[in-house]
Design a protein around this nucleic acid. Structure first.
Length: 793
DNA sequence: TTGGTTAGGGACGTT
DNA sequence: CCCTAACCAA
C-alpha cells in the first residue's frame, strides 16, 4: 500500500481524536450510540496503516464473540477499501466481484488473521493453551493444555455433589446455585479458599469455604477450569512467572478494551499486568510504542452481579494517566453525539439517568431529529401485554415498507417473560429469534455429545466420562459405577486409569465388565484418531459408534426427533467451525462451544423479531423497541428495591433498553401478572414516572388492524450410518483361593508378575485387591478368586 | 437396572 | 405452571 487516503474523514472530531491517539493511555467515555465501535475499528486500522504497527502486537477485548467478529469484518472492509483506492483508484464496490473476494482474502491473510480480538474468556483461554503447563498453583497442582472448560451447570453439579455426597449436607440449606455464586465471587476477588475462610464469621460461610476448597480440588482432578479460572489463572501465572508475562507484555503493545465499565477486578489486574509488565512504579513505565485504550460508559454498567465494577472505569485516569488537571488531560475523550436514536428517545434516556447519583456527567446529544412520542401502554395482564406488542408490530410491519420483522425487538428484564410473547408470535406465524434462556449448548443431547468429545480430549475429565459412560444405556448401572469411582478414589488414581484397565474393570464391574470395557475401548480408539482425523470426522465417529444417534432413532418420539435435529445442528456447527477457523482441532472447537453464547448467533438482517433480555441487548440497536414489564418488582427487580446501589443499576438497565431504539419506542406494563400460576397485582415501574410526561403518549387499547399471515415451519432431515459394534474381550480364570489378604502382601500374578497389595476392597466372596506391580506404572485391581495369582513369602 | 409417575420447589442477569 | 429429583414397580 503506497498511499493512504484520508479514511479518517468519516469521523467526528472526538472520534478522530481518539482514533489518532497513538501511545500512552486513553479513556474514551462513549455514550450509547455514539459510534464507539467505529472509533475502535478505525483506531486499529490507523495503528496498522499509519503507525505501521504489526497486527500481531494488537490485543482487543470485546464483550461478546459476535462483537469481535463484527469488528474484524469492519477492519477488513476498511483495509479492502484502502487497497482498492490506492491500487485500482476505485472504490471497493466498483471492482468485479471476484476481485473483491480476492482482495478481502488477501487482507485477511496479511492483517486480520494475526489480530487478537475476542472476549476476555476466549483470548485468555487461548493464552492458557500456550502456557498453562508452566503454571503451578499454591497446592502444587498442574494442568495440561488439554484442560476442559466447565460451564456453569458443570460447576454447579460439582458443587452439589460436594455438598450432598462429601459433606452430607442438605442441598436445600446450601443451594448449589447460591454456593457456587459465592465461590465465584470469591474467585473474582482473587480470594483462595483459605483467604475466603478467614473472612467468614459464621457457620454458613465456613461451610462454603470448605466446599470451595473441595471444589478447587475437583476441578484440578478433572484437569478442568471454570469460567472464572480462565481469567484468574492467567493473572496468577503472570504473577508467578515473569518470563511468561514478559513475553505477552512484549507481544501486546497496543491493548484495547471495549465495555470497560463491565470489567471486574481480576480482569483489570490482567490488563494492568499486560500493560505495565507488573511494574508498579509509574515512573518506570515506558509508553513508547505502547498504548492502553479503553472505551466505556458508566451509565451502561449492568453486570455488577458478575462482580463488574464501574469504579474501575472512573479510576482509569488515576491508574494509568498522566496526572494533568482535567482540563489539560490528554487521557480522556468524551463521545456524546448520538447517531442512533431520535431526539425524543434521547431526552427520555437523559432524564431517566439523571436520577442516578454515581456517574460521570454526560449527556447524549441528538443528531437525528425529533421523532415520534414514546408510546406507553397499561395492559390487563401479561397476555394482553403480549397481544398489544404483537398487534402493533404487525401493523407497523404492514404500514412501513422500511421495516421488516428484523426491525423489531422485544426487551424484558427476566427470561421467563418471553413466554407469552413467544406463544403469541407462534400463533400469528411471525418469525422470531429468542436469545438466551435455554441455550443450545445447554441442551441435554448437546451436552452429552460434548461430554464424549471432552472425555476424548481430556480423559481426566471424570465428570464427562461419567455423564456418558451409560449414555446411551450400556447396562452399566449405579452399583458398577460406584465401584469404579470408589476404587479410583481409594487408590488416588484418575477414574480413567481404572476404566482403561481391563483387569481392574473385570474385577470391579462384574456382569457389566463387558460394557465398560467396550466403552473404554471406544474412547481409546477416538483418542488415537484425534491427531489424524478432523474434528468433524471424530464427531461423526462418536455419533455413529457410541450408539447415541441410533438410540435416539429407536425412540422415535417427537422429543427424540427434536434431539436428533439438535445433534445434526451440532455436527453442522463443527463443520462451520472448521471452515471459519485457523487452528482447527477438537480442543479449540470445545473451547468455542463453551465460550459461545446465544447472543453470538444473533444474525442481523435475518428477518425475525428478536426477543431478548435487557442484559443481552447491550450493544445492539433496533428501529423499533418494545420494552415490556415495566413494573415495580420486575424492573426494578424486587431484589433491588431496598438497596439504592442496585436500584441505580436497574435504572441503568432501563436506560440501556431505551437507548436501543432508533425510531420508535414502546413501554408497556401490566396491571396483573401470573407468577408461578397465581395472579399477582402489579404496579407501574417508578422509572415510568421519572420520564418527562410531554414525551409520552398513552395508548388505551391494544387494537391495531390485523390481517392474516402465513405460518413458517422448518424440517431439516438427516441420515446417519449405522453404528458398528466392536467387541474384544476375553477372560482367563484360575481359582487360587487364599484365606485372607492384607495390605502389604506380596503376590505373583501369572500375567503381570510380582506385585504388592495396596488396598483391599470388600470381603468374603466379593473381595478384590489393588496391586502395584513392579513393572507396571499404574496399579491394577484383581480378583483373587478368578485371577491367576498366588501369595508369595 | 430401567422407566414411569409424582411431589415439591421455584425464576434476575451471563462468560 | 414447569421442571427436576426422588421414589417405586417391573
Amino acid at each position: 500500500m503506497t498511499k493512504t487516503t484520508d479514511f479518517l474523514s468519516h469521523l467526528n472530531s472526538s472520534q478522530r481524536t481518539s482514533v489518532e491517539h497513538f501511545c500512552g493511555p486513553l479513556l474514551v467515555v462513549a455514550g450509547a450510540g455514539s459510534g464507539k465501535t467505529r472509533a475502535l475499528t478505525y483506531r486499529i486500522a490507523n495503528l496498522i496503516l499509519k503507525h505501521r504497527v504489526d497486527p500481531h502486537n494488537i490485543l482487543a477485548v470485546t464483550f461478546t464473540n459476535k462483537a469481535a467478529r463484527e469488528m474484524k469484518d469492519r477492519i477488513q472492509k476498511i483495509f479492502a477499501e484502502q487497497i482498492a483506492l490506492s491500487q485500482y483508484n476505485k472504490t471497493l464496490d466498483k471492482l468485479a466481484p471476484h476481485e473483491q473476494t480476492r482482495l478481502r482474502s488477501q487482507v485477511y491473510k496479511t492483517y486480520i488473521k494475526d489480530l487478537w480480538i475476542g472476549t476476555f474468556h476466549s483470548l485468555f483461554s487461548r493464552i492458557l493453551r500456550f502456557d498453562i503447563e508452566k503454571y503451578q498453583d499454591e497446592k502444587g497442582r498442574r494442568w495440561t493444555k488439554n484442560f476442559s472448560i466447565f460451564d456453569e451447570s458443570d460447576a454447579q453439579s460439582v458443587v452439589k455433589e460436594i455438598i450432598t455426597k462429601k459433606l452430607q449436607l442438605d442441598d436445600k440449606k446450601f443451594e448449589p446455585r447460591s454456593v457456587r455464586y459465592t465461590i465465584s465471587n470469591a474467585k473474582n476477588q482473587g480470594l483462595s479458599p483459605r483467604d475466603f475462610e478467614r473472612e467468614q464469621p459464621n457457620y454458613r460461610g465456613r461451610v462454603i469455604a470448605e466446599v470451595y476448597g473441595y471444589y478447587e480440588d475437583k476441578l484440578a482432578e478433572n484437569n478442568a477450569l471454570d469460567f472464572d479460572d480462565l481469567i484468574l489463572m492467567p493473572v496468577k501465572l503472570f504473577q508467578q512467572n515473569e518470563q511468561v508475562l514478559g513475553y505477552w507484555h512484549q507481544r501486546f503493545r497496543h491493548i484495547l478494551v471495549d465495555e470497560y465499565q463491565d470489567t471486574n477486578r481480576i480482569q483489570y489486574d490482567l490488563i494492568n499486568l499486560l500493560t505495565t509488565n507488573g511494574e508498579t512504579r509509574k515512573s518506570e513505565w515506558d509508553w513508547r510504542d505502547r498504548s492502553i485504550f479503553v472505551v466505556g460508559d458508566a451509565d451502561q454498567s449492568i453486570y455488577s452481579f458478575r462482580m463488574a465494577d464501574f469504579t474501575i472505569l472512573l479510576d482509569f485516569q488515576a491508574d494509568f494517566g498522566d496526572g494533568l488537571p482535567d482540563e489539560d488531560t490528554r487521557t480522556m475523550v468524551k463521545l456524546e453525539e448520538n447517531y442512533r436514536s431520535r431526539e425524543t428517545i434521547l431526552q427520555a434516556a437523559n432524564q431517566l439517568i439523571e436520577n442516578n447519583t454515581q456517574r460521570i456527567d454526560k449527556i447524549l446529544k441528538p443528531t437525528r431529529g425529533e421523532g415520534e412520542k414514546i408510546y406507553c401502554y397499561k395492559a390487563d395482564d401479561e397476555i394482553a401485554e403480549a397481544q398489544f406488542v404483537i398487534n402493533h408490530l404487525r401493523s407497523l410491519e404492514q404500514q412501513h415498507s422500511e421495516f421488516n420483522w428484523g426491525s423489531f425487538a422485544v426487551l424484558y428484564r427476566t427470561n421467563a417473560q418471553s413466554r407469552p410473547i413467544e406463544e403469541n408470535l407462534v400463533r400469528q406465524g411471525i418469525p422470531y429469534t429468542i436469545v438466551g434462556g435455554l441455550k443450545f449448548y445447554d441442551r441435554k443431547e448437546i451436552k452429552d455429545v460434548l461430554a464424549y468429545l471432552r472425555a476424548i480430549v481430556n480423559p481426566y475429565d471424570t465428570v464427562s466420562l461419567l455423564r456418558v459412560i451409560n449414555t446411551p444405556r450400556r447396562g452399566i448401572g449405579k452399583t458398577t459405577i460406584d465401584n469404579l469411582v470408589n476404587a479410583a478414589q481409594q487408590l488416588n488414581l484418575p477414574f480413567w486409569e481404572i476404566l482403561n484397565d481391563e483387569t481392574s474393570v473385570n474385577t470391579l464391574a462384574g456382569r457389566s465388565a463387558k460394557g465398560v470395557n467396550n466403552f473404554a475401548q471406544l474412547i481409546r480408539k477416538w483418542q488415537e484418531q484425534v491427531d489424524t482425523l478432523s474434528p468433524s470426522a471424530i464427531v461423526q465417529g462418536v455419533l455413529d459408534e457410541s450408539g447415541y444417534v441410533k438410540d435416539l432413532q429407536n425412540q422415535g418420539t417427537d422429543e427424540s426427533l427434536d434431539r436428533l435435529q439438535n445433534v445434526q445442528e451440532l455436527y453442522n456447527a463443527v463443520l462451520q467451525f472448521e471452515e471459519e477457523n485457523e487452528e482447527v482441532n477438537l480442543s479449540n472447537f470445545l473451547a468455542s462451544t463453551a465460550l459461545t453464547s446465544d447472543l453470538d448467533n444473533l444474525k442481523e438482517g435475518q428477518a425475525a423479531v428478536s426477543l431478548l433480555t435487557l442484559h443481552a441487548s447491550k450493544g445492539l440497536e433496533f428501529p423499533v423497541v418494545f420494552l415490556v414489564g415495566l413494573e415495580q418488582g420486575l424492573l426494578p427487580n424486587y431484589r433491588s428495591l431496598d438497596d439504592p446501589k442496585s436500584l441505580e443499576e436497574e435504572r441503568r438497565l432501563c436506560y440501556v433498553g431505551i437507548t436501543r431504539a432508533q425510531e420508535i419506542l414502546y413501554l408497556t406494563h401490566a396491571r396483573e401478572r401470573r407468577l408461578y400460576g397465581s395472579r399477582e397485582p402489579a404496579i407501574a415501574s417508578q422509572f415510568l414516572a421519572e420520564l418527562p410526561k410531554e414525551l409520552l403518549s398513552f395508548h388505551l387499547s391494544s387494537q391495531a388492524k390485523v390481517s392474516s399471515t402465513s405460518r413458517s415451519t422448518h424440517q431439516p432431515t438427516q441420515k446417519w450410518s449405522h453404528p458398528q459394534d466392536n467387541s474384544a474381550n476375553n477372560n482367563s480364570s484360575a481359582a487360587d483361593a487364599e484365606r485372607d489378604w492384607r495390605v502389604g502382601d506380596r503376590i505373583f500374578h501369572k500375567n503381570f508378575g510380582i506385585g504388592e497389595v495396596t488396598h483391599i476392597f470388600g470381603s468374603g466372596n466379593k473381595i478384590s485387591l489393588a496391586v502395584r506391580f513392579a513393572n507396571l506404572s499404574t496399579p491394577k485391581i484383581v480378583n483373587p478368586k478368578i485371577d491367576p495369582l498366588q501369595k508369595v513369602e
